[in-house]
Design a binder for these strands. Sequence first.
DNA 1: ACCTGAACACCGTTCAAGT
DNA 2: ACCTGAACACCGTTCAAGT
Lengths: 238, 238
Amino acid sequence: MVFVSSAELPHPPWSSLRDKPPPRAPLSREAITDAALAIVDAEGLEGLSMRRLAQELGTGAASLYAHVSGKPELMQLLIDRMAAEIEAPPPDPDNWQEQIKDYARAMRRALTAHRDLAGASLANIPTGPNALRSIDGMLAILRAGGLPDRVVAYAADLIPQFVTADAYEGSLFAQRMEREPEYFDELARYFASLPAERFPNVAALVDELMDPGEQDERFEFGLEVIVRGLASMAESAP
Amino acid sequence: MVFVSSAELPHPPWSSLRDKPPPRAPLSREAITDAALAIVDAEGLEGLSMRRLAQELGTGAASLYAHVSGKPELMQLLIDRMAAEIEAPPPDPDNWQEQIKDYARAMRRALTAHRDLAGASLANIPTGPNALRSIDGMLAILRAGGLPDRVVAYAADLIPQFVTADAYEGSLFAQRMEREPEYFDELARYFASLPAERFPNVAALVDELMDPGEQDERFEFGLEVIVRGLASMAESAP
DNA sequence: ACCTGAACACCGTTCAAGT
DNA sequence: ACCTGAACACCGTTCAAGT
């Protein structure tokens, strides 16, 4: 005599459970955002479509519209989810320059952890709670540093814009490297082959311009330039 | 007796001209680029599809592929066409800071003249002749200013990245203003209504952060920050 | 050589109909 | 209230066939 669990038997036709509910977590904004971020992490923004996302959730695309107004709102949800990963250190008035750099680095890490999500970030004004908390932390550092309000407000645009543009370019670089690893060698050869008579300055600097793997240094350079520039704005407005 | 021009008559069936050639300029990269830029200027990047472009040229989408390898190459052609509009002043060693600002302003004007084309620019490494000529002019200014080569190379990334990101954000702002003029009022009300306990710094600076129509000033601020920062890098590397 | 129609494998969103 | 299938109006690209 062998015991057989009911899971191995088909549902009898009079059971109310027949084969209707394919066992699936119910839809919710949370679940939709989770699944969408998983797709972006695996394949980047171009892999994320409403239809693909629905498929991943075991439903049809139309069902998503009961929870999310459309793809633009979904992108906002993703961005705010990413923003939750950005930590701002508690402000220290004597150390705003190092602190704002740490904030920028944290933002870059959060963006870079999600492929080319920075591309969507560039096109959206952040309004979600996590983004606002993060921005508030950045403003706290700049204000503690004694910068005039107008400078703080402009800096609060400039810094995220720089970090996001850098992260976006970095993600495109990584994507190209993955899909077409020979591209950058070809590009370097192309630049090296340019006629020095027509483009003398490009030709003279081609090694510096093409230096590969300098992604982090370039970011640190831009960050240093911006922080020094902001510091000088503290003393003398233009 | 009335004279009738031959245009009013159908072609006789033995004519080699029957009704075959619908009078259309022949396809060429030039003509395709012209038409594509006209679409972008009228409707922005989202209006530009291979099918729509072909329709505008009186042909089918497949015909475009005889002249252009695909949409990515088309975008490169558009970007280089736009780059032709960027003038760099001849370098003056005593005036690099003002000159580099003029270069950045010229680049911003060229980008802004074509809706959200800056969005495509952000995603493409420029390789066309016009872009190279423009970059060479920018490098000439920075080198004449006496900046170290490494600083020149990094600056040659940072400045266009800043200008392009600014122009892209400006184009999205303009697009939203066109399509949904109430959006920014709503956004300002939303920010003004945020709880000051949770977001004290955002609440304190909400007027500065939301100040509308400050697009040009914000650009000039960022430019000043970057130029001052670069100048300080000339003296002391980090 | 250049162009074409038709097909392939996709999109985001809407809507009437179902449970 | 929530979900669904089917439809609408699109995409970029390929390819065999035509001139």
